[in-house]
Every structure is written in C-alpha cells, then in structure tokens.
Simulated scan of single mutants.
Amino acid sequence: MTSSESPNPRTSVLIVDDDPSFARLAVAHLETEGYECAVVLGAEEARCILEARCFDVVVCDLWLPGSDGLVAPNGLDLLRAARLLQPELGVVLVTAEPAVDSAIAALELDASAYVSKPLAPARLRSAVERALRRCNEERRIAASAASRMELRLRQEVETRQRHLDAALDGLRVAYQPIFDRRGRLVGHEALMRPATFQRPPEVLDLATQLGRENDVASTVFRCVASDAARVTGDLYVNVLPGDLLEEGLVEDSPLADIASRVILEVTEAGSIRNVRRLRQRLALFRRLGFRVALDDLGAGFSALARLAQLEPDVVKLDRSLTARVDESPRLQRIVRTLVELCSLEGAQVVAEGIESRAVHRTVIRLGCHLLQGFALGRPVFATPRDLVIAS
C-alpha cells in the first residue's frame, strides 16, 4: 500500500452485511490495518447512515434484507443510492453467490471491487485498498475541479469589478428639465450616464451583484454636488431605499451642503421592507433640508401604500398613466383622482413621460403641478450651452 492509499485517522469503512460473523471478522482485520469501521445489517439502515455521515469505503454484501425483511440483491440498489449520496465513495461488493450478471451490474455502477466469500484477510485488505485508491482519486479530481471553478469565479468577479470601476471612473450625470404649469423651469432630474457602453440598469445590476450599490450612489452624489452651481432649480436625485437606510451615505455626502435644493427621489419603493426605519431616516433628512419624492405612483398598489407611509413632498406619476392619457378617459379619471389625493396630502405631482403636445395639454388640464418629458426637454450634461438648449 502506498502512502497515498494508506488509511489515516479519518479513513472510515462502512460494512453492510447481515452475517454478524463476517462483519466481526472484517472489522477485526480492517481495524488492525488502521481503518475506522462501522457496521450495519441492512440496506435501509445503510442508506440512513450514508445520509448522515461521510465514509471513504463501503464493504457491502450483494444479498441484503430490505425494508420488507426479505433478502434480495439490495446491494446493487444501495450502490446506486451511495453514488448519489457520496459520489467519491469507494465500494467493495461481496457475495457468497457470484454471478456474471451481478458482476457486470457492479462494474456498470462503478464498484471498485467485486469479490466472493469466504474472504481471506489479504483479499479483503486488497479490495479495500483498491476502493480507497478510487475514493482518493475521485476526491483529487473533484478538488481540482473545485479549484478551477473557484479560480474561474474569482476571475469573473475581478472582471466584473474592473467593468464597474470603468463605468464609475468616468461617470457623468445628465439633467432633464422639469417645468411648472406655466412653462417656468423649476428643476432637473439627475440621470446617471456611465462612462462605458453599459446602460444605467446594467451598471446597477452589476453593483448589486458585487455588493457595491453604495459606490454607485456615492459617485452620483459627488457628480450632482459638483454640477449644482451650473444647474438651475431643484435637483431630483434617484435613491434606492437601501441607500437611504445606509448610515452616513446621504447625510455625510456632498449633497448635504446643498440639501435645500435636493429632492431625494425614492425609486423601487415596492422593495421597502423596514418602513418604520425608513420613516425615521426620512425625518432626519428633512431636518437637514432635504425633500422627498416618491417615484412611479400608479405602478401598483404598493406605491399607493407608500404614499401614506412616506408622506412625500413630491409624487411622480408612473409613465403608464401619462403616456396615452390624452386618448383615454379612464386614464384621465385616474390621473385626476391621484392629483386630488396627492394635493390633499400636501404633495406636488410631476407628470413624467410627456412626449407630445396633446399629453402636455391634458396633464395640465387634469391638474398636474409639474411636467417632465422629451417633448419639453431631453437630458443633457451640465454645460452652459447644453442646459440652455435643453430648456
């Protein structure tokens, strides 16, 4: 036996045989060789112990009593189950009635050895050593595959990190103008524009996979604060509920220096879990001068619930309500009702997605306080020329 095939303190053998005398002899011989042995008498008991504990080798009789108490060639069934439970397991199949059919079946199931009784100590030791070699080799292969997989995963994560770093290193913010009902420019929504060709949702997904959502938010906050002197009016800054719950992310950012101009636009409000904690954080932001907007009202019942829970200063209607509101009396009734409800709650309503004059006229008639959309102005970067053209 080579050193790699020698038993070590963890090398364990499960002996499955309904013949107590054979089991005792096998244990005596194998323990002399340094193996740790356990004995069970039937196939069902063996399945249970294989589910609960790992072994290196199983020495199993071909003919075993089943759950019905009848003796049958259950050793083959146990071998199938063992391969599913512990794929690297080495198996020695023993029988007092060797036959070609059972030997072929054992080989097809990748048994390490098929030997007949009575079994001399030397033959038992040789069969177990062969099974242990098989077990060790399978484990080496599995470990090597796991190492390769770990390396690939690590390389993939590093590649994703580089992609996210590239997207954030040159990230810029574009600003879409927001007007009041009289056409006066009152603010801009800050929209992330990554330095790479990735779309903003892809960058956010990548950051979420890497646990770096805060890095994205911090980068956007710095850009908005840097651009603020060149951008007119209020600044609508998109934030996730998780951003608001993160201690220091907002209140210690450069946005705090211009808090009176910043409206924190809460996106994905349906993902809010700890409403009580979020309300406490929003109260802190309001004391610092920030205002709060709720995005996508009308996108589902949860958004209506958030209206009552978050008490926003501004509410943005979901595009599904405004895109064709000029053509639908039903949508007009819904929008008018939401505007009245928000007004009662002290919140201004922004109609997003205005892409035609007809929609523009309709949302004004329905009472929307603020207006935003491509028909009024496209997102541009914070250069004086672009801002003038956009507005």
Results as ranks from 00 to 15, higher is better:
residue 255 L to T: 13
residue 383 T to A: 05
residue 353 G to N: 10
residue 133 R to E: 05
residue 83 R to C: 03
residue 144 S to Y: 13
residue 372 Q to N: 04
residue 173 V to Y: 01
residue 24 R to D: 09
residue 88 E to H: 15
residue 190 A to C: 12
residue 92 V to K: 15
residue 350 V to F: 00
residue 323 A to P: 08
residue 388 V to T: 03
residue 289 G to M: 07
residue 203 V to G: 15
residue 369 H to D: 11
residue 376 L to I: 14
residue 107 L to I: 02
residue 119 L to F: 05
residue 302 S to L: 13
residue 361 R to V: 07
residue 366 L to F: 09
residue 360 H to L: 14
residue 273 R to L: 09
residue 59 V to P: 00
residue 190 A to Q: 08
residue 22 F to G: 07
residue 282 L to M: 06
residue 146 A to T: 06
residue 54 C to W: 05
residue 222 R to Q: 09
residue 46 A to G: 05
residue 79 L to Y: 06
residue 182 R to H: 11
residue 114 Y to D: 06
residue 339 V to E: 05
residue 340 E to P: 00
residue 379 P to M: 07
residue 106 A to G: 11
residue 373 G to P: 11
residue 162 R to P: 00
residue 55 F to D: 12
residue 136 N to R: 15
residue 228 A to V: 09
residue 149 M to G: 09
residue 310 L to I: 06
residue 37 C to W: 02
residue 233 G to H: 03
residue 44 E to T: 10
residue 387 L to P: 01
residue 336 R to A: 10
residue 221 F to Q: 12
residue 290 F to D: 08
residue 363 V to H: 05
residue 300 G to H: 04
residue 121 P to S: 13
residue 116 S to H: 05
residue 263 I to F: 02
residue 134 R to F: 13
residue 296 D to A: 03
residue 149 M to W: 08
residue 165 D to S: 05
residue 303 A to W: 00
residue 10 R to K: 07
residue 4 S to W: 12
residue 289 G to W: 08
residue 115 V to E: 11
residue 184 R to A: 01
residue 324 R to S: 05
residue 40 V to H: 06
residue 32 T to Q: 11
residue 17 D to C: 06
residue 15 I to V: 09
residue 239 V to T: 10
residue 350 V to H: 00
residue 101 D to N: 13
residue 249 L to S: 12
residue 341 L to W: 00
residue 254 P to M: 09
residue 236 Y to D: 04
residue 334 I to N: 04
residue 160 R to K: 07
residue 232 T to M: 02
residue 67 S to K: 12
residue 260 S to D: 12
residue 273 R to D: 12
residue 122 A to E: 14
residue 270 G to P: 03
residue 228 A to T: 09
residue 274 N to Y: 07
residue 262 V to C: 13
residue 299 A to Q: 02
residue 387 L to A: 01
residue 354 I to Q: 01
residue 91 V to T: 11
residue 292 V to T: 04
residue 226 S to R: 15
residue 69 G to Q: 10
residue 185 L to P: 00
residue 260 S to E: 11
residue 108 E to R: 11
residue 299 A to V: 01
residue 21 S to W: 00
residue 147 S to Y: 14
residue 390 A to M: 01
residue 296 D to Y: 02
residue 86 Q to K: 06
residue 213 E to R: 14
residue 267 T to F: 08
residue 128 V to Y: 15
residue 190 A to K: 04
residue 113 A to Y: 04
residue 373 G to N: 04
residue 112 S to Q: 03
residue 264 L to Q: 03
residue 212 R to G: 15
residue 355 E to T: 11
residue 214 N to I: 12
residue 281 R to D: 02
residue 11 T to Y: 14
residue 211 G to A: 15
